[in-house]
């Protein structure tokens, strides 16, 4: 389950004090920073920033404090600007992490799987992995992602995170990943695992 927020500095754990929190001004830039840090082999984590740092759709990166100097060099070299920095992760939280699934039987005799991550859903035809719909969300990349994904298979479609720029896009990426995991990513011969098999 998701972590609960710590809302005062007395609650700062030893782990929090050994972390540095970096902000980049947008979810897209935080995701780009995460990518370049991973390429540089620097372990990092995407977190919900503390309340006082939020503008509405925000994401922060936490990493071990001993890596901070090198990490800042890496992201700045990639052209990313650090807009805020905290020497601990007090007040941060994890992103929503509950994923659920629902099965549908279509009038065409085919079976469909809907995967929900947070406020986002993706629905695929089980036998082919064809994405037949995406729904939910409220950020402006979601209608765009719907146009880009529907009609493609889980193997051929672009990952939502490559086109998405918001938290809703990130949630859709998680639903997409889970659909891929349940269905397999092979273009032919893959069959989705049923929800009951997963829970078992």
């Amino acid at each position: 389950m998701a972590l609960r927020m710590t809302d005062n500095y007395e609650n700062i754990s030893a782990q929090s004090q050994n972390k540095v929190l970096l902000m980049f001004g947008s979810v897209l830039k935080a995701l780009q920073a995460e990518k370049v840090l991973k390429v540089a082999d620097i372990a990092c984590e995407l977190l919900v920033p503390p309340l006082e740092l939020r503008t509405g759709c925000d994401l922060a990166i936490a990493l071990d404090s001993y890596e901070a100097t090198f990490a800042k060099e890496v992201v700045e070299k990639a052209g990313l600007v650090i807009t805020d920095e905290r020497l601990n992760t007090a007040g941060t939280a994890q992103l929503s992490d509950v994923v659920t699934t629902h099965d549908f039987e279509g009038s065409d005799g085919k079976n469909y799987l809907m995967v929900r991550a947070g406020n986002m859903k993706i629905t695929v035809e089980r036998s082919s992995g064809l994405i037949v719909n995406t729904s939910g969300g409220g950020c402006p990349d979601i209608p765009y992602l719907n146009l880009m994904l529907v009609g493609k298979t889980l193997t051929d479609a672009p990952h939502p995170q490559t086109l998405g720029k918001t938290l809703c896009g990130l949630m859709l990426e998680r639903a997409f990943d889970e659909a891929q995991r349940l269905c397999g990513a092979q273009p032919e011969g893959s069959t989705c695992v049923s929800a009951s098999e997963v829970s078992a």
């Binding site: 609960r4 919900v48 994890q94 929503s96 659920t100 947070g118 409220g138 938290l167």
Partner: peptide, 11 residues
């Protein structure tokens, strides 16, 4: 933001 919900998650 809905992506931040920690306690009252659907499911």
């Amino acid at each position: 933001h809905p992506a931040y919900v920690a306690e009252y998650l659907f499911g």
